[in-house]
């Protein structure tokens, strides 16, 4: 079973992830845009770059709102924690070296993993709970948002359980959920991982063209 999960199932999940992600991204990019634009006051490209790479913290005017602080802190905690665990947890570095790239890097220490994972868990759970308790997010959330949060939570949880690598079952369980997550990813709101630079880029280009110091 573990051979199947780490072999054909892994490659099948990866293929679905890559093919449908490219399909979704390609579809969006090839939909076309405005042909005629009024004269720009300043650089659209500079505005896009600034909106994607620089203006990533909430603007001061919005920080008067507690919910903005909450979402910003929980959001950054979750995303930074998740990426740190994904790229620097010792089993992940081994996996990347053996299965994907052929080379690795220095992993984070065990205590670092524990702290980082706790930060990521806290962020994810706080954001997910908010979907149920805040009237605004309760109104606008879809089933997809809950599935995406739930699957990510399970992947992280099984990952923690499998951290010691002493149990083949736990490793297989984690890999199985990772594959499920990869299959779900291109069809879900998880895909914002790839589309946020486009979205922020388009808005930034508008700010840039119009000379808005956003």
């Amino acid at each position: 079973m573990i051979a199947f999960i780490e072999g054909p199932a892994w490659y099948a999940a990866l293929t679905i992830f890559v093919v449908f992600s490219l399909w979704r991204l390609g579809w969006v990019l090839l939909m076309g845009g405005d042909k005629h634009k009024s004269p720009a006051r300043a650089s659209a490209a500079a505005g896009a770059i600034r909106n994607i790479f620089v203006d990533l913290a909430p603007r001061g005017a919005f920080l008067k709102r507690g919910k903005v602080w909450f979402v910003a802190l929980a959001g950054y905690a979750f995303h930074l924690g998740l990426f740190a665990v994904l790229l620097f947890a010792a089993p992940h570095v081994d996996f990347i070296e053996q299965k994907l790239l052929g080379f690795g890097w220095t992993p984070m220490p065990y205590w670092g993993f524990i702290v980082t994972a706790e930060i990521a868990f806290a962020g994810l759970l706080l954001l997910w709970i908010r979907r149920f308790v805040d009237p605004v997010t309760r109104l606008i959330s879809r089933l997809d948002d809950h599935l995406a949060a739930g699957l990510t939570f399970i992947v992280m949880l099984t990952g923690c359980l499998a951290l010691g690598q002493q149990s083949v079952f736990l490793r297989g369980l984690h890999m199985g959920f990772v594959e499920l997550w990869l299959v779900y990813f291109p069809f879900s709101s998880l895909f914002h991982t790839f589309t946020w630079p486009l979205s922020r880029g388009y808005s930034g280009a508008l700010f840039g063209r119009r000379g808005i110091r956003a």
Partner: peptide
């Protein structure tokens, strides 16, 4: 389309 594909329903 980019906007439609990016919303995570955070409510901010």
């Amino acid at each position: 389309a980019s906007y439609m594909e990016s919303c995570v329903r955070c409510g901010l």
